[in-house]
Simulated scan of single mutants.
Amino acid sequence: MDDFYHSEDANNIVHLFYNADVMVYVEGEDDVPFWEVVFNSLAEYKVEVQEVGGSNELAKYIEELELGKLQGVIACDSDFEILKGNLRNPNIIRTYGYAIENSLICPSTILKVIRSVGKISAKNIPSQELGVWLSYFTRIMKNLVIYDVHNELNGLGISVVGDNCSKFLKSKKSHDVCEIKVNEFIANIGFSVSQNEIDTIINLIGEIPRDFSDFIRGHFLFSAVSKFISASIKQINSKVSISNDALFGSLLLAFENNFDEEHKHYNYYSDAIKNLSIAA
């Protein structure tokens, strides 16, 4: 990969090897199927989505693209870049929310996974329970997101949310976030956020516009949703279990089935792809 990467000419004709019109470079293997769904649904040309082996490698591609030495498209997680005003190059397309999980995960995909994996009849789908859980989860997460954004914008380097929700759950067997644990964590986090700074972050997110849930880190969101899905399936059909890999695959399939004009993020990705500069 390194030798091939350092060949500028090779990179700019690699799409021909795949009989594609455009190369789309992504960070890792989980990103490939997500961006394939997005581009295959919205682009009027054929793309080849290729993972480059991690964030450090992707940074090299971004640098080459910014310098005009690389043709193609880079598709990656937004992280907090939109809050920093760093979205300048239209050929770097970023996720609507923090990561691909924020687009993959929504009430309809969660319920489809529960129904298909749990082999659950339509009348037993926990729609109301999911609504209550999501409402409570996003409400409790708001303060964590504010502190996570403040930490990122000020370069404090403290782990706020992390990749796993377990330490914030009411118990090892629970799928509910514990408000007391969240408040205790914030009280001992090592930095404070003034009311004025909180208001600034709230206004910043509101002006984009985005919801606070869009800035929950992707792996953290996935870990929390996996807890809810597993608990829901076990309650109705205790014989069924699901691994994280299988859950991701099921969410991806549900997302592919749901990705149309009714999806909350559809227009964002549609506009982003329309704005790409694709060489003839």
Rank of each mutant, 00 (worst) to 15 (best):
K170V: 13
E197D: 11
I208F: 09
N203W: 11
F212K: 05
Q195T: 05
I202L: 07
V145P: 09
G218S: 13
I202S: 04
K172N: 06
Y136R: 14
S223Y: 02
L156D: 01
V161Q: 14
N188T: 11
N183K: 12
I180R: 09
K170P: 00
D214N: 14
F168H: 00
I229P: 10
E207S: 01
P209L: 00
I158M: 14
V177D: 10
Y147F: 12
L169K: 04
G162Q: 07
G155Q: 03
E152R: 10
L156S: 03
R139T: 15
M141R: 01
R210M: 13
V161E: 09
A187R: 14
S166M: 09
C178M: 08
V182L: 09
N164E: 04
F220G: 04
S174Y: 03
E184L: 12
R139N: 12
F185W: 06
V177A: 14
I189S: 07
R139Q: 14
G157A: 02
R217T: 00
A187L: 10
L221F: 07
Y136A: 14
L169I: 14
I189E: 03
A224N: 04
Q195R: 11
K181A: 00
N203T: 15
N164M: 06
S192P: 11
E184N: 15
F222K: 11
G162C: 15
E197H: 13
I180H: 06
S192V: 13
G190A: 13
R139G: 12
G155F: 08
G218T: 13
I208G: 00
G157E: 09
N196Q: 12
F212Q: 11
F185K: 05
N203H: 12
H150I: 07
S230H: 04
